[in-house]
């Protein structure tokens, strides 16, 4: 299964562009989408989810044009939007039955399917309570359950870990990893560690354009040997910022530990080389481009 996106452009109005000439091929496995706010991640996901039409370009799922024939992907799509809501007067069972109807899932086995999903997201005990009384994390879990209702072959998660506590985030990542064997999963997040732990490939976006798409080690390779850490006086941090790309700072009594990526200058003699991470590569790419 493959999703081929070619020269996609989304122009909202004369001054606002969501995507510019965006091309990418997505295969089975987990693709992590990284990018700052306004990079076009949600726009791309909405277009793949068929709820937004591109201004230009094509989208083919296994050779079939899904812009012209959106119902082709809708049957096998699981989508968790960034800012979704629920009907507060329905309970979890009723809500999932409703979403199942939207997805065209029915039959006698639907009940069992819903029960299993509620169990997987640990909402069985709350299944008969109106969703309006749920906490933010519980609502996010019901959102994840609905995305999995129709045994999807294309799963789109837009900022899925928002509202989840650290433990929930870990469990969610396990859950997604289990599903990745036979479907395309597209996952966007601001939290690089969420992507780092589970994504097979990473696509980094900025200003509606694709900066890079590759397997994680290949992306990290771009900053290998360029990442350093140094302990400096607090008043020296500003000078460092002018010379290097400062990734992180941490105060230690009257000193500051600075993690940076060298641009063209040589690192300070006291700097120690550090292991590059996906976050380093992401910041290097997004801050050096545009």
């Amino acid at each position: 299964m493959s999703l081929v996106i070619k020269n996609l452009t989304k122009q909202y109005n004369r001054h606002k562009t969501g995507l510019t000439d965006y091309s990418i091929t997505i295969e089975k496995g987990i693709l992590g989408l990284l990018g700052p706010n306004g990079a076009g991640k949600s726009t791309l996901m909405k277009i793949i989810a068929t709820i937004s039409k591109p201004t230009k370009g094509t989208l083919f799922l296994d050779g079939e044009d899904i812009v012209a024939n959106p119902d082709r992907i809708r049957k096998i799509l699981g989508y968790l939007p960034q800012d979704f809501g629920v009907y507060p007067n329905l309970n979890a069972n009723e809500f999932l039955e409703y979403i199942a109807a939207m997805k065209g899932v029915g039959g006698n086995s639907l009940r069992k399917r819903i029960d299993m999903l509620l169990e997987a997201v640990n909402l069985t005990a709350d299944a008969k309570r109106p969703i309006g009384t749920y906490s933010g994390g519980m609502k996010q879990r019901i959102g994840i359950a609905q995305a999995l209702l129709n045994d999807p072959k294309v799963l789109i998660f837009d900022e899925p870990t928002v509202g989840l506590d650290p433990e929930e985030r870990v469990r969610f990542r396990q859950l997604i990893s289990d599903l990745a064997d036979d479907c395309i999963i597209i996952l966007s997040s601001h939290i690089v560690s969420d992507i780092e732990t589970i994504a097979d490939e990473v696509a980094i976006m900025k200003n509606g354009m694709l900066l890079n798409k590759a397997a994680q080690p290949d992306i990290i390779k771009m900053v290998n040997g360029k990442v350093f850490e140094v302990l400096v006086n607090n008043d020296e941090v500003a000078t460092l910022r002018t010379k290097h790309l400062v990734i992180d700072t941490g105060r230690q009594k009257d000193k500051t530990r600075v993690r940076f990526i060298v641009k063209t200058n040589q690192p300070e003699p006291s700097a120690i080389a550090a292991n590059a991470t996906l976050e380093d590569a992401y910041l290097f790419l997004t801050q050096n481009n545009g």
């Binding site: 065209g104 899932v105 299993m116 997201v121 045994d151 469990r171 859950l175």
Partner: peptide, 27 residues
């Protein structure tokens, strides 16, 4: 608070087969 997700995750093999129904009565 209970654990957020079941530790067993989702075993797709144990899921009942998918039955399609594109009618409007459930809506």
């Amino acid at each position: 608070a209970v654990l957020a997700f079941a530790s067993t995750g989702i075993n797709r093999g144990l899921m009942p087969p998918l039955v399609t129904n594109y009618g409007i009565f459930p809506f």
